[in-house]
Amino acid sequence: MNRKLVILLSTVYVLFMAGLAIFFHINGQSFKSMVAIGGIVCGAIPLLLALLTKLQFNLPIVLSYLIFLVGSQYLGSIKGWYGLGWWDTIMHLISGAIIAFTAIALYERLIHRDAGNDISPWFVFLFTLSFAALGGVMWEIYEFSSDQFFGMTLQGGGNTDTMTDLIADVVGGLLIAIWAGVRTKVKLTSTNMHSA
């Protein structure tokens, strides 16, 4: 059921962005058209994962991701909410947290089950934080590349904008990484008490 819902929601978002891309292209609004094309690509990620791989993320992560895309691409870039100033920072804070939750989901699916009882909470913390930071860096590379190759202005604030975004990504990831590390420590303590 979750897989079908992920496919449905991702398809709706991709089609919505495709419609916007065509509409803005016809009306000569190239910036908004390019953002919408980016929306098609980003919205297709959970769709492709659901269709082409066995790797499935839980529904709250996919829903959070799609809500984030609406907030960043549609509300932020197309509707102009990034002009509010604080909207960009909020979006990066949220994206850092979402990427950190994705790291936890990946970790729990990819690690060998027998290793779960011996894993260090510090490793979980560092893995989660590093994954969130990497996600933030990859997004800034996307913004930089879009500005350089397509004449967009995603990094309108220059270095200050980039660093503020990265700090917000790391703070969002840090909060979830702390929670993940503590949760792992509690699980280990509980497992050790039951096995003693």
Score class of each variant (00 low, 15 high):
residue 4 K to E: 12
residue 10 S to K: 03
residue 15 L to R: 01
residue 15 L to F: 09
residue 16 F to I: 09
residue 18 A to W: 01
residue 18 A to L: 13
residue 20 L to A: 13
residue 22 I to W: 12
residue 23 F to R: 13
residue 24 F to Y: 15
residue 24 F to P: 01
residue 28 G to P: 11
residue 30 S to T: 15
residue 32 K to I: 00
residue 33 S to M: 15
residue 36 A to H: 03
residue 37 I to Q: 06
residue 39 G to T: 11
residue 39 G to I: 10
residue 40 I to W: 04
residue 41 V to E: 05
residue 43 G to C: 08
residue 46 P to G: 01
residue 49 L to D: 05
residue 50 A to D: 01
residue 51 L to T: 07
residue 55 L to S: 05
residue 57 F to C: 01
residue 58 N to Y: 11
residue 62 V to A: 00
residue 62 V to H: 00
residue 63 L to F: 12
residue 64 S to G: 15
residue 65 Y to Q: 06
residue 68 F to D: 03
residue 68 F to G: 10
residue 69 L to A: 09
residue 69 L to W: 05
residue 69 L to M: 13
residue 71 G to S: 07
residue 73 Q to Y: 12
residue 74 Y to K: 04
residue 78 I to N: 00
residue 81 W to S: 06
residue 83 G to S: 08
residue 90 I to L: 15
residue 91 M to S: 13
residue 93 L to K: 03
residue 94 I to F: 13
residue 97 A to I: 03
residue 97 A to H: 02
residue 100 A to M: 03
residue 104 I to F: 06
residue 104 I to T: 08
residue 107 Y to I: 08
residue 108 E to Y: 08
residue 109 R to N: 14
residue 110 L to C: 10
residue 112 H to F: 10
residue 112 H to E: 14
residue 112 H to N: 14
residue 115 A to P: 00
residue 118 D to S: 11
residue 119 I to T: 13
residue 120 S to L: 10
residue 124 V to Y: 02
residue 129 L to G: 08
residue 133 A to C: 10
residue 136 G to Y: 04
residue 137 V to I: 15
residue 138 M to L: 15
residue 139 W to I: 01
residue 141 I to E: 03
residue 146 S to Q: 07
residue 146 S to G: 15
residue 150 F to Q: 09
residue 151 G to I: 10
residue 153 T to A: 12
residue 154 L to K: 09
residue 157 G to N: 04
residue 160 T to V: 13
residue 162 T to G: 04
residue 166 L to H: 04
residue 171 V to D: 00
residue 171 V to C: 02
residue 172 G to N: 04
residue 173 G to F: 00
residue 174 L to F: 15
residue 177 A to R: 02
residue 181 G to Q: 02
residue 182 V to I: 15
residue 183 R to Y: 13
residue 184 T to E: 14
residue 184 T to A: 07
residue 185 K to E: 11
residue 186 V to K: 13
residue 186 V to F: 11
residue 187 K to F: 11
residue 188 L to K: 14
residue 193 M to S: 09
residue 193 M to T: 10
residue 196 A to K: 12
